Structures are given as structure tokens and as C-alpha cells.
Amino acid sequence: MTVHNIATKDAFHEAVKAHQVVIVDAFATWCGPCKAIAPIIAKMSEEEKFKDVFFAKIDVDDLPELSQELGITAMPTIIAFKNGERDGTVVGAKLPAIQELVAKQL
């Protein structure tokens, strides 16, 4: 798989409806920790055990309305959705917590 760049609020809601498990990386282009965690999330998206997980990124500056709807107050924020429902959040570049959040979705 890959990490899909979500460009609109509608595309985000479609992804959450269309996939059983969605991991959203809410980032900002100017955010250092976001840049540090992005390649790790990209690598996770390529792992066989996560083949059924839809990994997505949203730029909080490009989608402020969606960011507000999701309650994003700091970047990076990683949010898990399972069966259309929010199923966990990690705020910050906390790698062990992010890995645990993603693994919990399997």
C-alpha cells in the first residue's frame, strides 16, 4: 500500500466509509516532528501485516475545517478509524504509541 494524500473533507469521509481501518496522519508542512514521523508511517503502510489498513495524510493548513472537526490541536496527530468510528488518537511523534495504535486495529 501507500500513504494516500487526502485533499478534501469529502475525500476523507469517503475513505473512512470505504475502508474498515483508516489511519490518518494529520500534519503540517512546517512541522519538524511531522517530517520525522512521515517516513516511518510510510514504511508501516508497506508492511504485509498492514495490507488491509488504509493510511492517509491530511495537511491541517489545507483542510482547517476538517482539522477542527477532528479536534486536532497539535501536529502530528495520528487518528485511527475502525468501521467508520474513531478508535484512538496519538498526539505527537510518539513512535511506540503510534505503532501500538496501528497494531491494535488488526
Rank of each mutant, 00 (worst) to 15 (best):
residue 86 R to D: 01
residue 47 E to Q: 15
residue 90 V to C: 06
residue 29 T to Q: 13
residue 12 F to E: 00
residue 97 A to F: 01
residue 97 A to N: 11
residue 57 K to D: 12
residue 70 L to N: 07
residue 88 G to M: 02
residue 1 M to F: 07
residue 36 A to R: 15
residue 14 E to T: 15
residue 41 I to Y: 10
residue 46 E to P: 06
residue 38 A to K: 15
residue 68 Q to P: 00
residue 78 I to E: 01
residue 57 K to E: 14
residue 102 V to N: 10
residue 93 A to D: 05
residue 61 D to F: 04
residue 87 D to N: 10
residue 43 K to F: 01
residue 74 A to F: 04
residue 30 W to M: 06
residue 67 S to M: 03
residue 73 T to L: 09
residue 100 E to L: 12
residue 102 V to L: 05
residue 3 V to Q: 08
residue 101 L to D: 05
residue 34 C to K: 09
residue 26 A to S: 10
residue 2 T to M: 00
residue 84 G to P: 04
residue 14 E to V: 12
residue 77 T to N: 00
residue 58 I to F: 06
residue 89 T to N: 01
residue 67 S to E: 00
residue 92 G to E: 07
residue 54 F to T: 08
residue 13 H to G: 13
residue 28 A to D: 04
residue 43 K to I: 02
residue 1 M to I: 01
residue 12 F to H: 04
residue 46 E to V: 08
residue 62 D to E: 13
residue 52 D to L: 14
residue 31 C to I: 09
residue 8 T to G: 05
residue 50 F to C: 12
residue 95 L to I: 12
residue 69 E to K: 09
residue 89 T to E: 07
residue 70 L to G: 05
residue 67 S to R: 08
residue 43 K to H: 11
residue 37 I to T: 14
residue 26 A to Y: 02
residue 47 E to L: 11
residue 91 V to I: 14
residue 49 K to S: 11
residue 64 P to I: 01
residue 57 K to Q: 14
residue 9 K to L: 03
residue 48 E to G: 12
residue 78 I to R: 02
residue 59 D to R: 05
residue 104 K to S: 15
residue 20 Q to I: 02
residue 51 K to R: 14
residue 65 E to R: 14
residue 105 Q to V: 11
residue 32 G to V: 09
residue 86 R to I: 00
residue 102 V to K: 07
residue 51 K to V: 10
residue 52 D to F: 08
residue 70 L to V: 05
residue 18 A to Y: 03
residue 6 I to Y: 05
residue 8 T to D: 02
residue 15 A to R: 07
residue 41 I to F: 06
residue 77 T to V: 03
residue 3 V to G: 11
residue 33 P to D: 01
residue 36 A to F: 15
residue 71 G to K: 03
residue 89 T to A: 03
residue 106 L to R: 10
residue 103 A to F: 04
residue 62 D to V: 08
residue 29 T to M: 12
residue 88 G to W: 00
residue 34 C to A: 10
residue 5 N to M: 12
residue 69 E to A: 10
residue 22 V to E: 09
residue 36 A to C: 13
residue 31 C to R: 05
residue 85 E to N: 13
residue 9 K to W: 01
residue 98 I to T: 05
residue 34 C to M: 05
residue 19 H to T: 06
residue 80 A to Q: 05
residue 16 V to P: 11
residue 20 Q to M: 10
residue 30 W to H: 10
residue 70 L to Y: 09
residue 66 L to A: 10
residue 35 K to A: 15
residue 8 T to W: 02
residue 6 I to A: 06
residue 55 F to W: 10
residue 48 E to Q: 14
residue 18 A to H: 02
residue 69 E to W: 08
